[in-house]
Nucleic acid binder design. Structure first.
Length: 811
DNA sequence: AGCACGCCGACT
DNA sequence: GTCGGCGTGCTC
């Protein structure tokens, strides 16, 4: 007898461990580590994942049940992915089942239905009510259906259940819908076909035509394609099938979201000396067959993608597979095209715009080895590949690699961990590496390669920083400075295009003096204060420091205090007003929700059907339009002034990215950056394309203020319907954490409690506290112990606690 | 997360 | 006396 260890589909701490099941002999051959199975758990049958198969079990035989289903023809998790869930659940303090679910397409997540049937006892139909009669006729009815048909009988149903007249069970099913199509399978023997053709009466022209076609094309073909191809009627095909020349079968098809697109085959470009050197080092590492991590630090337009492509080609030639992670927003058709163009059908693409079914099919292509390269957003790091050789993370610094729901993992960290398990090579690519990665380069835990020049020796665009305080003093109250205004007019005259960006992110407004650029900051945290309109206070979201809203500027006494929060819509209005006849495409979350709209707008802009592409930071990346000669940043300070210690880093990154959109081809580019703090080092150094001085300076600041990469953070958010309960519990949590941390180290800090920037969400008040500790420390156990100690209180008072390790959004 | 078991209050 | 509220504890 063999036994399977199974992680069950219940995301609760109490069952976050493997349960043992006996494997019935009929299933012994198909149950493997990674198999998705159905197991009896309590009185239900639920889904689970096998983590190991063993010959013995510690659990007393009388308590062991048998697993009842194996749900797929192959294990859905690879051994490495199973192991990765151990790291992930411990690092991010979440259940293993939630990690496993994050690794798989949504189609494989189980759905559970309560099903009802009438206990069959002959001769009892005389006691039927309309409801029992209905159930009896249907055999088995789901709770949803029953409830819609008989909305007032909830109590009646309960009664019937306890009387044993109705039976209830839980039905488990997955959400996958395989795409089925009618496929025509020609008879494999040409002699049979020849004979049929000879027997076919000459007047049956279409039938003869079809049989002749089968002789030339013996491969199976989708019915609808065949009909189009031969301009034929389905009845003809049916008749020919009846003659025994072919068979028609419902067949499961893999959807190909890119089926109707023709990606022109591209060939490797010749590499510059710098590119060649980087490529060579990656290839050397691939041959070593062990974990090796590179930072590929290349300015925008330095040709990083070509290095990726050729490294992947080498990886494939070694019979190994590759993962390419790209931030969701830059997973544009342009990007997909480059990979499909080089590797064709060997590429699977995974992104959020695919339907659930499409995503499942792309996933299966990888699982079944039909595709060996995956290009995808964050979760593609869990692609089910078994011979992984290379992981590429493009735009490594992007915050979209951090998942903001449980499990709150960071794809870069997951990649490093997975590469360690699979002895793979990791390439982190960026023009503006995150400080975490840059610092890792300095301390030697990864190898840095630099591409300081653009391909073709095109110069980086000239960046003008415009002091908006000065503009105001000169009497210009518009959102466009005069230099930017002039530049726009010039482009309109010359029929060149421009990209205007307003990085309006989040909703926190910040407080600034328009005369001198003073921004209200917390005296303890060096973090800009957030305006809370309803209480007319400004407040620090890190430590809770609060003061009254400002009437005059503490620095220059002027009354030009503004609460910032201009959106793209206002800019669009203004553009139309100032430049009559201007054609604007606005791209932000409001205009790009529709499937394919992203692509549509960009195509339109590429065809020069608009003068201006106006958008949020989603337009900052990856775009490459030859006719764009002007990039304007309406307000460079918005991120700088968010309550976030990464403000300077993000500002530098964004300005560098967006500047890289200009002048990528023959026409030289110009960039205008409007700011109320042009002397800020992030803005000033970005305008001169000076990454290293920026990173070094920012690292000093981080060290000084005890922030990552030198310290680690864990953010706890507590919510409850009552504000005081939420706050009191947060305080208590902070206290318990402090006690436990204190036993482990002196090098820690507990901050808060403070109200969350989203102070109330879905009728629940939210408070948070944060711990900060030495980065070589693991605090998983401390946190687990603290939460365990408070478990009763969490349950009784119905507070909800979320734990965010290495948070990106501090709210 | 469900679900059963179990111990106290308010109804036919 | 029974129905049913939700506190407690378990699920291989």
């Amino acid at each position: 007898m063999r036994f399977a260890e199974v992680i069950v589909d219940v995301p609760a701490k109490a069952v976050n461990r493997p349960f043992d099941y006996a494997i019935p002999s009929a299933l012994e051959a198909v149950v493997e580590p990674g198999s998705r199975v159905g197991v009896p758990f309590g009185k239900r049958v639920i889904q689970g994942f096998v983590t190991a198969v063993r010959d013995t079990s510690e659990v007393p035989a009388n308590r062991i049940k048998e697993l009842v289903h194996v749900l797929d023809p192959y294990p859905v998790l690879t051994p490495s992915l199973i192991e990765l869930t151990e790291w992930m659940s411990s690092k991010y303090i979440c259940s293993r089942i939630s990690c496993m679910q994050a690794m798989l397409p949504g189609a494989l997540k189980a759905k559970y239905d309560r099903m009802f049937a009438v206990q069959d006892q002959a001769g009892q139909t005389w006691m039927d009510t309309p409801m029992t009669q209905y159930v009896r006729e249907k055999g088995e009815v789901s709770w949803d259906e029953l409830h819609t048909m008989f909305p007032d009988e909830a109590a009646g149903i309960r009664k019937l259940l306890s009387d044993g007249i109705l039976m209830e069970r839980t039905r488990m099913k997955d959400r996958l819908q395989k795409k089925m199509q009618l496929v025509v399978y020609p008879h494999p023997s040409s002699t049979v076909l020849d004979k049929a053709l000879a027997d076919c009466p000459p007047q049956a022209k279409r039938q003869r035509e079809l049989i002749a076609y089968f002789l030339d094309h013996p491969e199976p073909i989708v019915l609808s394609e065949l009909l189009v191809k031969l301009e034929m009627n389905a009845s003809t095909v049916k008749r020919v099938c009846e003659l025994g020349c072919a068979e028609m079968k419902e067949t499961e098809m893999l959807r190909d979201p890119y089926a109707d697109r023709d990606f022109g085959q591209t060939t490797p470009l010749s590499l510059t000396i710098e590119q060649q050197e980087a490529y060579d080092r990656i290839v050397d590492a691939l041959h070593m067959n062990e974990l090796h991590t590179f930072l590929l630090h290349g300015v925008t337009g330095s040709g990083k993608t070509e290095i990726y492509l050729q490294s992947i080609a080498t990886c494939l030639a070694r019979q190994q597979e590759a993962i390419v992670l790209v931030p969701e927003i830059s997973l544009t058709p342009q990007m997909v095209e480059r990979f499909k163009g080089r590797f064709g059908d060997r590429v699977a693409v995974l992104h959020s715009r695919l339907s659930q079914g499409e995503r499942y099919d792309e996933w299966r292509k990888l699982r079944q080895g039909q595709a060996q390269v995956v290009v995808g957003a964050r979760s593609a790091i869990f692609a089910p590949l078994e011979r992984l050789g290379l992981i590429i993370i493009d735009e490594e610094h992007e915050s979209s690699y951090k998942q903001e729901e449980t499990p709150r993992y960071h794809a870069r960290d997951a990649a490093l961990q997975r590469a360690k398990l699979e002895k793979a090579v990791v390439v982190l690519g960026s023009a503006t590496p995150s400080l975490e990665t840059y610092e890792a380069g300095l301390n030697g835990s990864l190898e840095t390669m630099t591409l300081p020049n653009r391909v073709g020796a095109r110069p980086l665009p000239r960046v003008h920083v415009i002091d908006m305080r000065h503009e105001l003093k000169q009497g210009n109250r518009s959102m466009f400075s005069r230099p930017l205004h002039e530049a726009i007019v010039k482009r309109l005259e010359r029929k060149e295009q421009m990209v205007l960006m307003l990085n309006r992110r989040g909703f926190s407004t910040f407080v600034m003096c328009r005369s001198c650029g003073y921004v209200a900051e917390c005296p303890h945290c060096q973090i800009s204060l957030t305006y809370h309109r309803h209480i007319q206070h400004i407040r620090c979201h890190y430590c809770g420091y609060t003061e009254r809203e400002l009437e005059t500027c503490p620095s220059c006494q002027s009354q030009h205090i503004r609460y910032f929060g201009t959106g793209t819509q206002r800019v669009e209005e203004e553009l139309v007003k100032l430049f009559p006849g201007i054609r604007v495409i606005r791209m932000d979350v409001d205009t790009t929700t529709e499937k394919g709209s992203h692509e549509k707008w960009l195509t339109q802009f590429g065809r020069q059907q608009a003068d201006v592409l106006l958008g949020t930071q989603m337009i900052a990346k990856g775009l490459d339009f030859p006719n764009v000669t002007l990039v304007g940043v309406i307000a460079a300070d918005t991120i700088l002034n968010l309550p976030d210690f990464r403000g300077a880093e993000r500002t530098f990154q964004l300005l560098t990215q967006v500047a890289g959109r200009a002048g990528r081809h023959e026409l030289p580019g110009e960039v205008f950056v409007q700011s109320y703090a042009p002397e800020h080092y992030a803005i000033e150094l970005a305008s001169r394309h000076h990454y290293q001085p920026f990173a070094n300076k920012e690292l000093v600041m981080r060290k000084l203020r005890d922030y990552p990469p030198y310290k680690q953070l864990v953010l706890f958010t507590v919510s409850h319907e009552m504000a005081n309960i939420a706050m009191n519990f947060t305080e208590k949590l902070g206290k318990v954490l402090k006690e436990k941390l204190h036993r482990l180290t002196r090098d820690y800090e507990v901050m808060g409690p403070v109200a969350s920037p989203i102070a109330r969400l879905k009728d629940r008040y939210r408070f948070q506290c944060m711990i900060k500790y030495a980065r070589d420390l693991s605090v998983t156990e401390v946190i687990e112990q603290a939460l365990e100690q408070l478990e009763d209180e969490i349950k009784n008072r119905q507070v909800r606690v979320t734990t965010d390790v290495d948070p990106y959004i501090l709210m």
